[in-house]
Design a protein around this nucleic acid. Structure first.
Lengths: 207, 207
DNA sequence: GTCTATAAGAAGATAGAC
DNA sequence: GTCTATCTTCTTATAGAC
């Protein structure tokens, strides 16, 4: 890993924990194992490092999201997968999404950074809303819309269903960001939540 | 309003928008209409202002929470109120809780400040978790437990019910903190959520 | 209680040697 | 590409006049 990437990595870790303004350039350099002035051979300013993180993480996100059809206007592929959905596979989807969001090193640090910086400007606010609210909700909504059309789920407002499915996941995720030691309880509650969700919305005769 | 309180107020506004470290003492003094050194006649340090905010807001919270029986180990009074619960009164409770959390000037700014500072130390993390996760969830759980005992709601895991009821409220609340212009859509979705929730959990023969 | 003046230090960033 | 030395500005905080 080259120095430029190591700076980005160290900065992301520090920004995620303390916020942009609370971290000094010297601190970042220290974490990388160089002196502060050396850092300016790689980035022209502290703000430049922040912007590079933003760019890099947005690129990663778009790749990840498009592979899941989370950003596009259709979820056709996933509907195909979930048309043979069972309670266990619904749990797998929920737990999988949750643990990925929670444990992927970059995703996790970037989410914390955005959490801290979200009120600084409208661009960061919009990015947070897109990645952690709008995209997951519209993705889930489309999934449930298809599962409804297949006759597997009771007919219901899919936006509300998406909110019912995703909001607990979101709350538990932000909880674990703050209190990592509560992950076991969170996972247990998440599983109970999905079982209950399945019980509520799934047609009795389906499967 | 005396100067000491005006400093607290101005500092809270600034901390909520930019975070503790991004705000200078001069900026706070400016917002109050005095010079920075004058501020030290009221508080002995910048950190002292922050701690005073924390203390003041925790006191306000405890008063508010105890009047709602949110912190205690029982929700007896509220169960009495909600034993005559209707769909409309459930919506009123949800919307009321939501708009209070969102529009109360102090509650709102303090929540934003905690959001920004939550990863700085474990004390702030614990405070956030208590006020915006644990207390509301245990409160809701107790309410549903009583409504279940009254035979108004279907029997179900009340912790999961509380999560189903509160998590969407929480997601929409944090969304509106970030994007205040989305409040109308959020309120509409919140109302739909509660109607759906009621439909799901309420016994058909109840009422 | 407010001000001006100022200390003491930290921060972002540059110059120039190696 | 890394370092030391340095500049400049910002920031917290104090001293002391009014």
């Amino acid at each position: 890993m080259n120095t430029k990437s190591r700076i980005l990595d160290a900065a992301l870790t520090l920004f995620a924990e303390k916020g942009y303004h609370s971290v000094s350039v010297a601190e970042i350099a220290d974490a990388v194992g160089i002196k502060a002035p050396s850092l300016y051979k790689h980035y022209k300013s502290k703000r430049d490092i922040f912007d590079a993180i933003l760019l890099e993480m947005q690129t990663r996100y778009e790749i990840q999201a498009s592979s899941l059809n989370m950003n596009g206007s259709n979820a056709t592929v996933d509907a195909g997968i979930f048309s043979s959905v069972s309670e266990e596979s619904l749990i797998q989807m929920g737990i999988g999404l949750f643990t990925y969001f929670l444990h992927d090193d970059y995703v996790c640090r970037f989410r914390k950074m955005l959490t801290i910086e979200q009120f600084h400007d409208t661009e960061l606010a919009a990015l947070y809303t897109k990645q952690y609210n709008d995209d997951p909700l519209s993705y889930q909504s489309q999934i449930f819309s298809m599962l409804g059309a297949c006759g597997l789920f009771r007919p219901a407002n899919t936006d509300v269903m998406a909110l019912h499915f995703y909001a607990p996941l979101y709350l538990l995720l932000t909880l674990c960001d703050r209190e990592p030691e509560q992950e076991p309880e969170a996972l247990q509650l998440l599983e109970q939540h999905i079982r209950q969700f399945n019980l509520i919305y799934k047609k009795e005769n389906a499967q």
